[in-house]
Design a protein around this nucleic acid. Structure first.
Lengths: 302, 302
DNA sequence: GACGTCCATAACCCATGGTTATCACAGCAG
DNA sequence: CTGCTGTGATAACCATGGGTTATGGACGTC
């Protein structure tokens, strides 16, 4: 039913040489091995491919019929290998960058990219938006190679990261909300408000954006679950609740009828560039280095 | 370097099912065997073809790249098998009839053919002239399936035959030869003449046409070696010697300046239809039966 | 008649491709 | 939380396959 590609190579070699010993040398195997394999092929196909007699080796009609097809099979396989090689090459230069929301922040992405391309000019970067269900922005299921994520990261041992920015947390409110009248708020103002929450699957990150550790032990009331900036905006103007937001992401929500106010007494939030700890691919590590270099440069400008 | 076609089938099956257990059932092998083979294929290619995780089995970019090519290889192989099958089918209906000189003799060939086509309407007969170097007219090297030959046949055990015609032997002479004046000659007239002989490779048949057994122990003088009717005619008019010829073949030589005369005191010659004893193919045996039927009919006409 | 060439065969060895039994893990019902 | 179900991976085992070297037998050559 099937053949081994090797057997076809052997067949073609003998058909070309019309000489088992020479063909065997060309194939770097012993002559008996070649004889045996060709015989087995003939047996498997149920037809003699070569007529061997005193005068030498000739192709039978069946062999003549097979030869061009055997060449085509081998050629198709060679193309398959070439396609694989091609795929591997593009895979080596492609880097998928996952992100939950635009990292933005004054050209961070282009800056890191330009640092990367110094070392890897052939790199092709691909940006990918990932819903908030996945706090790793695609690292977990392999759909991203590196990702801009908010700390804390789910599994400390499976991932490594570099903090790219630390920002105070603000609260986003409908503009008609009583607290909107104040310039800044404290957590105590918010503990009784319903909150918009990340999906359950976001795990520790959900708690972080609910400020669960800063409520003095009182559980948050969940007004709605939101999966992306658009849903969040709609839920805010709809009065379903309020939510915390990184200072740098405030503009994603303040489109109209929504305002943000600093929350002065809770910890900052950290945007990080993360990658899988077991991912040793050069391009991944190079991107991480580029990001670290950028982060250092921003922290201590010349 | 090479692949086994089977491995490609396995790969395609898994790529289609995206489910090892189901694919294994479709392939009628156990699931572990399939897992193992696919892993080995991946290892051999140096690239993962499937991403297996909780969410199930998916193709990697490398797998995506390989899939269409794998299908093409399998398709090319299927075509190869079809071509082989085709070759075998035509081989089963083709019969090569070898002959040293035209058997002629009043439509013997068409008569046998019409008997054969009663049983094998699809048979395709192919006539093939074989030089006199090969007394088996191509049976020995397989280039003929059946052959019209003159007895004796070289190796009595490798061949079987049916006598199709028994004819007296004549002698062919240049028309200016003294013996041409007689109506018939006896062997004693010829023992001192130079003879035209078949090639050495004709073996016993060479001796037969030299009438070696009818010379009373005196060896023949060889005037020339001839390989076909044209050479024979030229050698005769050139005066290189004389030669024996079957009565039914006399017209091949008597074109002008050559005459034939009966040799009254030597044995007849027998034209036979021969085939390889180990050749059990239906078409060969059927042709032999057709020939035998024709020979009987001629011997005992209704 | 000894020798060289060429393909086939024999005896042997280890890698391969298959089997069954079992594990590890996620998803889910109770 | 527990146990069941369904998934792919792993382990242990066995027969076959694809290779090796050594040898045989048929032909052609000097």
């Amino acid at each position: 039913m099937d053949v081994h590609g090797r057997d076809l190579r052997y067949f073609v070699a003998v058909a070309e040489e019309l000489h088992f010993t020479l063909a065997a040398q060309r194939l770097f195997i012993s002559q008996p091995a070649l004889s045996k394999q060709v015989r087995l092929l003939e047996k498997a196909l149920g037809a003699d491919l070569f007529a061997r007699d005193r005068r030498g080796v000739r192709l039978t009609p069946a062999g003549e019929a097979l030869l061009p097809h055997a060449r085509r099979v081998l050629e198709a396989w060679a193309e398959a290998r070439a396609a694989l090689e091609q795929a591997r090459a593009t895979e080596e230069t492609r880097l998928v960058i996952g992100m939950s929301t635009s990292p933005g922040r004054g050209g961070m992405l282009p800056a890191v990219r330009s640092r990367l391309t110094e070392a890897h000019p052939a790199a092709v970067l691909e940006l990918r938006q990932v819903g908030w269900q996945d706090p790793t922005a695609g690292l977990a299921d392999g759909s991203s190679d590196v990702a801009f994520v908010w700390l804390p990261v789910a599994d400390r041992r499976r991932y490594r990261w570099i903090v790219m920015a630390a920002e105070p947390r603000h609260v986003a409110l409908p503009s008609r909300h009583p607290l909107a009248a104040k310039d800044a708020v404290v957590m105590a103002d918010l503990v009784d408000e319903p909150f918009l929450a990340l999906p359950e699957s976001a795990g520790a990150l959900r708690d972080f954006w609910l400020a669960a550790d800063e409520r003095g032990g009182r559980a948050a009331r969940i007004g709605a679950v939101v999966n992306n900036p658009d849903e969040t905006y709609e839920a805010l103007v709809d009065g379903r609740g309020v939510c915390l937001v990184a200072q740098g992401n405030a503009t994603l929500l303040t489109r109209g009828d929504v305002v943000t106010r600093p929350v002065t007494d809770i910890g900052a939030c950290n945007l990080a560039l993360a990658w899988r700890a077991d991912d040793a691919r050069p391009l991944v590590r190079a991107y991480a280095r580029a990001a670290a270099g950028y982060a250092r440069a921003v922290a201590a400008p010349a």
